[in-house]
């Protein structure tokens, strides 16, 4: 508990320093609980998520950094490796390939990379995975873009 708190405090300071380096990622620590974080990540360019801002919820376990943070999308997203309803993410570093070499910041970077490079062979969203696997890139892109517009962009007045 003490070790995880100390580590998170270091990450907090790092996040303040990195702000300018990583404009795609905005990591915000809960005011009263250093084990709860929110991230706002920008959809990568030249993907159907471009122009969207996606909110992630990060819950850090007491065993951190020996155990990974739990991360899920709060913003609705149509992506093969994100559960459409729960926002759960299928990413090896959040499960079996986790190591303390990762940080909350680099986890967010990995999620942005996953948005740009979906892995349809291990889908959590089968509809999305099937579109990609059957080669219907246009179908996948238009669905993903529609949900980006609906859920991840400011509403036009």
């Amino acid at each position: 508990m003490q070790a995880s708190r100390a580590r998170l405090f270091k990450e907090y300071k790092e996040v303040q320093r990195e702000k300018a380096v990583d404009p795609e990622i905005q990591l915000i620590c809960d005011d009263s609980n250093i084990f709860k974080w929110t991230a706002l990540i920008k959809g990568p360019s030249e993907t159907p998520y471009e122009g969207g801002v996606f909110q992630l919820a990060l819950v850090v376990p007491e065993q951190y950094p020996l155990q990974p943070p739990q991360v899920r999308f709060l913003t609705k997203i149509f992506h093969p490796n994100v559960h459409f309803k729960s926002g759960e993410i299928c990413l090896d570093i959040l499960k079996t390939a986790w190591s303390p070499a990762w940080t909350l910041q680099s986890v967010c970077r990995a999620i942005i990379a996953l948005m740009a490079h979906p892995e349809p062979d291990s889908p959590l969203n089968c509809d999305s995975g099937n579109l990609l696997r059957s080669g219907d890139i246009r179908g996948y892109q238009s669905m993903a873009r529609m949900y980006t517009r609906l859920a991840a962009m400011p509403k036009k007045g």
Binding site: R7, K10, E11, E14, P65, P100, A101, W102, T103
Partner: peptide
Amino acid sequence: GYVDFTFEDF
């Protein structure tokens, strides 16, 4: 290129 704080505690 490892960030110091990721391994220094260990």
